[in-house]
């Protein structure tokens, strides 16, 4: 049963979370809820990327007592997706803070969080 391995399970979880986050973004009316859905979507993409880089029965990409310099290529998982996710997490918190600031500004202009009641972009 190949789907019982941990990389398949975590990738399926990531895909389900992606769908839930996308559903939240397009169906919710409250602007804070939209930002929360965005953060769920963010986490799901990190999960998918890390599970793509996983290779069964191999260990973390750090040279120490277990992994020596010479046999590193046969003993470690893929370090490249991990490096990409590491930067993506920090960018994610910055973008979330920026969106929250815009939400705060919209709230102080319009006194409501419902995006249907924002009149400034309608014509």
């Amino acid at each position: 049963m190949k789907y019982f391995n941990i990389e398949y399970i975590s990738m399926a979880t990531g895909l389900f979370l992606f769908l839930v986050g996308l559903w939240g973004i397009i169906s919710q009316k409250n602007i804070i809820k939209i930002i929360i859905s965005f953060s769920v979507l963010d986490t799901s993409i990190h999960l998918i990327l890390v599970s793509i880089g996983y290779i069964r029965n191999k260990t973390a990409p750090i040279i120490d007592g277990v992994v020596s310099k010479t046999d590193a290529a046969t003993k470690i998982v893929d370090p490249l997706p991990q490096a990409l996710v590491l930067t993506a997490i920090v960018i994610g918190v910055g973008v979330t803070a920026l969106m929250l600031t815009y939400a705060l500004r919209m709230y102080s202009e319009n006194k409501t969080l419902e995006i249907n009641k924002y009149k400034s972009l309608k014509w």
Partner: peptide, 29 residues
């Protein structure tokens, strides 16, 4: 889950940023 997927760097960064700093910023707003 990142720990099980052999990614300790990502795991501790996500634990401190994704689940602590983001929540604090949300609560300020």
């Amino acid at each position: 889950i990142y720990i099980f997927l052999a990614a300790p760097d990502v795991a501790i960064t996500e634990a401190s940023i994704g689940s602590a700093l983001t929540v604090v910023i949300f609560f300020y707003v």
